[in-house]
């Protein structure tokens, strides 16, 4: 499938302007500085960085929540610039997002069935019966039960809520799914389940992921390509093996060094160092 580019981003900028007031001068903050990348159909691009590096701003631009200041985004040949053209239903059906915090991303007063049907209700002319059938199918597909259809979000655990959020995002069968730290609020065992689910869905539906994360071990497990961001700029961009085996930029190296190692060899090394010091 190589060469089949589904997401094409060129020279993307996002500038936040604060207005001048009586007491303050106008300031501008560039959250994303000239980012360019391609993602191929059915693959996963991981965007790695720490807080304030612009990765969430990038996600918001890709999913049409915010407009870009300059530069171009193209999803499956369809240019996206919501400041100029607005958002069409067609655009919306191509890109969807899953948020980090499953406790905040579901409306507490909306039953699960309504959560899942909302995208269909708003973007298609599907009759109610068909919408319900699709929602029920989707519940099973993400590993939930049909009886969950009529329940409220607070009756679910974090992992189940994230399954619901994923189900909502793929109801419209988008081409591109932006995952904004989808597992970092979850427990380890649940994290594994969600990562498995994401892999299964990708295989089954041919989804393309932009996976935003700060957790390198998750990135290594899931991604095909990796992009490291630092203060709004891309400092490293390559295939997973290139980046993990031979990081080029100092920041990437620092990031790898700071990641806790949970293997026996590292523990041995640490304990030996400690014994020496004592």
């Amino acid at each position: 499938m190589s060469g089949d580019t589904i997401l094409k981003v060129r020279d993307l900028y996002r500038v936040y302007e604060t207005k001048a007031t009586m007491f303050r001068k106008a300031k501008s903050l560039t959250a994303v500085k000239g980012v360019s990348f391609d993602v191929e159909r059915g693959t996963t691009l991981a965007v790695v960085g720490e807080s304030g590096c612009g990765k969430s701003t990038l996600a918001r631009m890709l999913t049409m929540i915010d407009a870009q200041s300059s530069g171009s985004i193209e999803v499956d040949g369809l240019p996206i610039n919501i400041a100029k053209t607005g958002i069409s239903k067609e655009m919306r059906q191509r890109v969807q997002i899953v948020f980090q915090n499953p406790y905040g991303s579901l409306n507490p007063r909306q039953k699960i069935g309504d959560v899942l049907e909302e995208p269909l209700l708003l973007n298609t002319d599907m009759p109610a019966v068909e919408r319900r059938d699709l929602a029920l199918q989707m519940l099973q597909k993400v590993g939930l039960q049909p009886e969950h259809y009529g329940r409220y979000p607070h009756m679910f655990s974090g992992g189940q809520r994230q399954r619901i959020a994923i189900a909502r995002a793929i109801m419209l069968k988008p081409k591109l799914l932006v995952l904004d730290e989808p597992v970092s609020a979850l427990d380890l065992s649940v994290q594994a389940q969600i990562l498995n689910l994401l892999k299964d869905l990708q295989d089954e539906m041919g989804l393309t992921y932009v996976f935003i994360s700060h957790d390198l071990s998750v990135v290594r497990y899931l991604s095909d390509k990796v992009m490291v961001m630092y203060f709004g700029e891309v400092v490293e961009y390559g295939t997973r093996d290139e980046v993990f085996n031979a990081p080029q930029h100092d920041y990437t190296k620092k990031l790898f060094a700071a990641t806790p190692q949970a293997d026996v060899a590292s523990i041995r090394k640490r304990l030996a160092l400690k014994a020496d010091a004592a």
Partner: peptide, 26 residues
């Protein structure tokens, strides 16, 4: 600015729906 409101926006909800159906009940 909660995520669920943004999520509804991404799903295509208009202003009136966001105001009365998504935000108001909460």
């Amino acid at each position: 600015n909660r995520d669920y409101v943004v999520a509804a926006r991404v799903a295509g909800a208009g202003h009136i729906r966001l105001m009365f159906k998504t935000i108001l009940p909460n």
